[in-house]
């Protein structure tokens, strides 16, 4: 088992209103087989033993599918590995003696709750505006009764891979949520079940996104590089099409 020692500069912030600052800690020996969150667990145990406040961070499934974890490590949301959530980032990607700078996802729409924990309920409120199908679709149709080309189904599935972690917002120079909203609008826009409400959905979700304090997309592509699920900015283009279509062609206001 390979062990590495790291210097950890981690953001500590008491609560939403306090100002916060970096705390520098020595990690002690860390197994390279550990995940990033396990490394933080080790640090926290050490802090707890000496009666200090552990580092607060969000986590749940720890298998990269729930979207709960996330922090900016050395300038990259979810750390430097491609298509990897923070919980699936392993310490073998770091070298002995490395300095890790760990910050919470930062955006006006994401308030820091404590240390690395941020309030991402702004994303939930966007979903509440239209990230669902509410028309009565009747009983479950027979298999293949609703014709959808395989290619289209794949694209919808790719969009639906979004776990809503907020890394796209964290990585965006303008803290825009367009990749998130793009994925959520696309997964319905591509399928027949999403059609009846598509115009209303695009208009409402975009309006809620703007109200929630996210910035404007600058087509910088940083979001798709940070996305742990590899969601493409094609979904942003589709959102733009859906929105423009809804605004100009549909009867919805």
């Amino acid at each position: 088992m390979k062990l590495i020692n790291l210097i950890v500069k981690v953001w500590r912030q008491e609560n939403e209103t306090s100002s916060g600052s970096f705390q520098t800690l020595k990690s002690g020996p860390i197994s390279t087989d550990m995940s990033f969150l396990e490394m933080l667990d080790v640090l926290n145990e050490k802090l707890a033993k000496v009666g200090k406040e552990p580092i607060a961070f969000d986590h749940d499934c720890r298998e990269g599918i729930c979207g709960m974890c996330g922090a900016v490590v050395n300038g990259h949301a979810h750390g430097p590995e491609n298509e990897t959530t923070l919980c699936q980032l392993h310490m073998r990607h770091f070298n002995d003696g490395d300095t890790l700078v760990i910050e919470p996802f930062r955006a006006r729409a994401f308030k820091v709750v404590k240390d690395l924990v941020v309030d991402r309920s702004a994303l939930d409120s966007i979903i509440a505006e239209g990230g669902y199908v509410s028309v009565n679709t009747g009983g479950a149709p027979d298999g293949n009764a609703v014709p959808i080309p395989q290619d289209t189904a794949e694209q919808a599935l790719d969009a639906s891979a979004c776990i809503g972690c907020g890394a796209c917002v964290a990585a965006c120079p303008n803290a825009s949520a367009m990749l998130f909203v793009g994925a959520k609008v696309s997964q319905y826009a591509l399928l027949p079940q999403g059609q009846p409400e598509s115009a209303r959905r695009a208009l409402d979700m975009v309006r809620k996104m703007d109200e929630s304090g996210f910035g404007n997309c600058g087509n910088e592509r940083e979001c798709e590089a940070a996305c742990p699920k590899g969601i493409s900015i094609r979904n942003i283009a589709r959102l733009n099409r859906e929105f423009i279509k809804a605004a100009i062609i549909s009867y919805e206001k």
Binding site: R106, N174, G213, E222
Partner: peptide
Amino acid sequence: SRPQRYAVKKDTRR
């Protein structure tokens, strides 16, 4: 849109 800036932020595709 981001009142508190990052101490370290790396660009990837910009």
